[in-house]
Design a protein around this nucleic acid. Sequence first.
DNA 1: ACGAAATAGCGTACGTCATACACTATTTCG
DNA 2: CGAAATAGTGTATGACGTACGCTATTTCGT
Lengths: 259, 259
Amino acid sequence: MSETDRHGRDDHRAGVELLWGSEERASRGPKPGLTLHQIASAGIAIADAEGLGALSMRAIAERLGFTTMSLYRHVPDKTALLAVMIDTAIGESLPISAGDRLWRSELAAWAWQNWDLFHRHPWLMQAEVPGAMTGPRQIAWIEAGLEILAGTGLTGGDMMEIVLFLYGYVHGMAHLSLTWMRHDPLAWESSSLLMQHIAHDPRFPLFRANLAAGVFDEPNDAATSADPMGEGFEFGLQRALDGIAAYMRQRTDPTPGGP
Amino acid sequence: MSETDRHGRDDHRAGVELLWGSEERASRGPKPGLTLHQIASAGIAIADAEGLGALSMRAIAERLGFTTMSLYRHVPDKTALLAVMIDTAIGESLPISAGDRLWRSELAAWAWQNWDLFHRHPWLMQAEVPGAMTGPRQIAWIEAGLEILAGTGLTGGDMMEIVLFLYGYVHGMAHLSLTWMRHDPLAWESSSLLMQHIAHDPRFPLFRANLAAGVFDEPNDAATSADPMGEGFEFGLQRALDGIAAYMRQRTDPTPGGP
DNA sequence: ACGAAATAGCGTACGTCATACACTATTTCG
DNA sequence: CGAAATAGTGTATGACGTACGCTATTTCGT
């Protein structure tokens, strides 16, 4: 067991270095015919097209025309590779400013770009990687959020908490969206089966009422849209921004109306 | 491939029925010495103690003193079992009213109970199960949220969107918390390694400043607390509730200040 | 220029996983 | 009482991550 632990730790350390270290070519030995970036890109392509379940070391190697074990010359283990894949995918679209200098629209753009990212690479949500393997591009995303709030007169701590608040919301809502809205015909049938069950269950009168009122689009409508929960996301986003705005007012106007 | 698809669909349907159907004993055949509830409970115990990675059909069967394949008499596949585990774990603590009838404190209690649930069973976040396999107890949780908002004069659609907004936030923040705050000593070392990298990276001045200011507790402090991100959660929760409150004001007071 | 050192990729092998399938023993209904 | 249905067992299969030893290649110190 202690051997396993030691190994796990070494792989963790190696994973962090893979994300943050410099990619220097070794001086001696044959020239690599395979790069970390190629591997990560192949992995992303597979995960995008066929889901995380289809992402095996074998599948990646085959796609690249190398043997499975060759990958391990560039990556300590699959978890570390996933971490690199995540950071690579995030890096494909770093946050773009909305253009104006208004924190509210900038934050909204920031949130929507994040939302889109999760929908472009649905496996990002499922990939379970320890937080210590966070990569620089993910930090860059947080940094961008902090930058947006930099001119508002909030303390650093407040800024960080607000960014994490918003990031948490985006992440959670994207998870809901992706869990629910796999519009493959396979999930379709069982989904309507579930709706039938709920619709006949007397324990959930309010939920049922909303079902009947079409608050959830009927599955056949939802299946036609690429982003069926986008409206719900926008709603929550506006609530979140309202909450942030209220907090900023409260912190910058020291109104004398105390207890 | 079409054979696999057909099978996947059948398993999906069976999974939904497992969650929602009635558990009637078959009339003929030997008496079962094993129940679905036992299996799910054993699975929960393993996942709680050793994580989702240690949750194998073999491990569950061994713990119960049966063979691996015996489980498949009660469960179509592992995904469906996970769905039952999730619903069982959620059912262990159904939402409890805060006592007063104020939507704000009731919703806060609701959110905190959800947060606690995720921390009591961290694997709930990792368990990837299709949305169509949502169980009745999870719906009960949403229903409880709707009930809290029932007296506020909002439309059904608004109520649902608010509950999903809050649920999304709780889920996302819990994910952040659990991804980051595995306080096992194994993750510890690589985590501080990451912090070192960030601390020396000129690309993230704002993030670095907050690191230096101790906005993230130093890892050694965080490791001592059972819920190190609880404060951040409460902060975001209050912002979310403020945002909801603002929306309710806007919808119930039809102020004439239009465009 | 040359041997030592280091590395890239390959081939094989192992243990673990979910799960298909055939079998036996048990219970109940017609 | 026999036919039908079911609970649990035993064995087998194919996919997975990855440890280990090998060969071929490149570069450094001499």
